[in-house]
Nucleic acid binder design. Structure first.
Lengths: 222, 222, 222, 222
DNA sequence: GATGAATGAGCCTTCATTCAT
DNA sequence: GATGAATGAAGGCTCATTCAT
């Protein structure tokens, strides 16, 4: 049935165009920030016509929202992959998780700039906050689940709830990202950032000591 | 000398107007984000005329820059006060420092929203980055100085440089701020955030253990 | 091919709109001078919307430039037509040339006002000067070519270069235009202006004497 | 009487300030054109306060008008001086007149630019036109008077009224000025411009032949 | 008499959005 | 379905002018 194929092709083409527009949007945000995004620039970058964004997304607001959602979904894919490899021990999954989030390609200057750009306006946009909330809730829950494996099932370690520990871990990661963006020259080396997370966690989960960076002996052999 | 008094009075009045404009700018950013700042709104909020901002700051860009600078200076005043009370022990100065930065009025939703708003665009503005860099350098250095007191003068603790530890601490604080903004409902309680910082630091400075939250015994008495 | 026709029609329509904007611009300059030109007025005069000029010309500066260029091109068309009718003798082409430039519709108050308006700012605008230079060079060269025909091929007449004579002729025309504008009441009659040019030229090309106004006998028969 | 002296001094000071403001206005016009003139710039250039122009001239319009009038008066002074030296013959006064108007310091790029700037807007300003008219009338009359001396009292020469010849002469001068401004590189040399005027006049006043540039013999000795 | 802070109208420009083709 | 010309609201900025000091 040609008509069916045609409509399928059209639909597929439409999806591709949509994706190109979203990618272009993210690229522009990375390069120029949120205010740099204009419908005209998005259209130009995709070699499409000026009216195209309104055609696919109705309003600019909607385009931005979809781009933000896409950003979160890519992020989700990454940490889920790191956390969910059940053939690995909890310890090594944690290690993989930290490396994923604190090394490229995730902890890339451009990508993080996009995060920060959205975060900068999120407090003033309920819709943005909802996207953050809905995914972050799962994110924290998943991290907490990993920590529970490390804790042997206990919900509290040294008087701290696993939830608080999990949230703190995500906060540290966010904090390193911010630092990475704001202090381009003097930010912490990624391995130091990873190690700092492990140092924090090792207070609750001593088995993580093995992952810590070795103590370099100083010149006096101490 | 009337003429002198007169010019002084005028100059003082001008300063006051200038300050009102900066305050209004910050208020608007807190409420609506950077994009919400309009010369007209700033003027309206100060009950002044539309051209007033250009008279005092030449361009909107310059107004924003001055507002950002002011934000940093207020912040600097706060942490310097906490860190510099030399009548207190290093431990209690650290405690004061964390409380200052992670409790109101500094860790206030509006104030933090302003920080985030600026950070969101800073990566794309060299001038903003320079302001960040120039103050953050001192900020980190001052924290490092405090840690050195705690370390008894050693520059390295457990194989980690004091600098890396100091930077990590500031990153954690930033991370908690972000979390505070993005997860209005589910963010960490301030005392938990403070405790988390201390947990991290206590790995390097055992005397901080005394500041940690007490381990609550669970219902089984463990 | 409908798509081709469509795009052609659109393109044609766009050209028409562009032209309307340029015409409106010239009209406003004629009536109110350069400072009278406002994007809003141009839009209003064409019954179009406020943003239209920026759509077609990007900036006001560019709109003005195009209007100026158009003015020069219309002028060029006029003198080329007068000079290039090779079926006529050099003498009658010169006569046609002078009549073209010193009588309506070219030497029209509105048109000349536009010239003067642009000339008034040209010294401070490199781009304007370049337009003047590029066309005036050809203008003078073409006049010089005509004079060479009158001179029988000689480059110098009575010790004056044909180039200097040609430039002087164009200067006289410009001077009459200025006089026409500045002394609306008391300016020279067009035929006297034309005659004055011929008087000047006749010093070098005696055959022009036949074109001069007849000497009116005064009341004393002298 | 001190009070009298004081008021005289004040009045003198006021005149000086007024003159400084006018001079600054002319300077700015010369450098940037009419649109470059702002009250703020005039004040700055005179090292005076922002409100000073309104104080002395009430409105900007009035300031510009006075500047224009001053320009005309300076010009008038120059040509009157050249024309009125009754110890000289009419021929040499004509020569002096042409040299005055077609050589520096009168035919200076900056000065002429100011003329052109005013002329560019004059057609749209009745007040400007009136200034032009009132002085130009005398200017042309004075030139005509000189020509009458040359003509031996006749009002008509070769069928042309002395008035028309006089006007043509002033038009030629204006035309050379325009050419001087618009074709900075390729304009006529001042001596050629002077000669061209004399060539024109010599048609009516043969005794001027003696002032013409000598005919250079070409290589063939012709 | 002089100052300069403050005013407010008017301008150019940007840009999301619409709609005829 | 797609295009791109046209719209019109809104913002930043300039600048002549005013007026309290």
């Amino acid at each position: 049935m040609p008509s069916h194929n045609q409509s399928t092709n059209r639909s597929k083409q439409k999806q591709i165009t949509r994706q190109k527009l979203l990618d272009a949007t993210i690229d522009i945000i990375a390069e120029e920030g949120l205010v740099g995004v204009t419908m005209a620039k998005v259209a130009e970058r995709t070699q499409l016509s000026r009216g195209i964004c309104n055609f696919h997304f109705d309003t600019k607001e909607h385009l931005m929202l979809e781009a933000f959602r896409m950003l979160y979904q890519e992020h989700e894919l990454a940490w889920r992959e790191a956390l969910s490899d059940l053939t690995e021990s909890p310890t090594s999954r944690l290690s993989a998780f930290l490396k994923t989030l604190l090394l490229p390609p995730i902890a890339d200057h451009k990508k993080v700039a996009v995060w920060m750009a959205f975060w900068g306006v999120a407090p003033h946009r309920q819709t943005y906050l909802e996207i953050c909330a809905s995914i972050d809730r799962e994110y924290e829950a998943e991290v907490e689940r990993l920590l529970r494996e490390l804790s042997g099932g206990k919900k509290t370690v040294h008087g701290q709830s696993l939830h608080a520990i999990a949230v703190t871990l995500t906060c540290m990661i966010d904090g390193f990202w911010v630092n990475y963006l704001i202090s381009p020259g003097g930010c912490l080396a990624p391995e130091d950032a990873i190690n700092a997370c492990l140092v924090f966690l090792s207070k609750f989960f001593p088995e993580l000591d093995s992952l810590l960076l070795p103590e370099e002996k100083d010149s006096n052999g101490n």
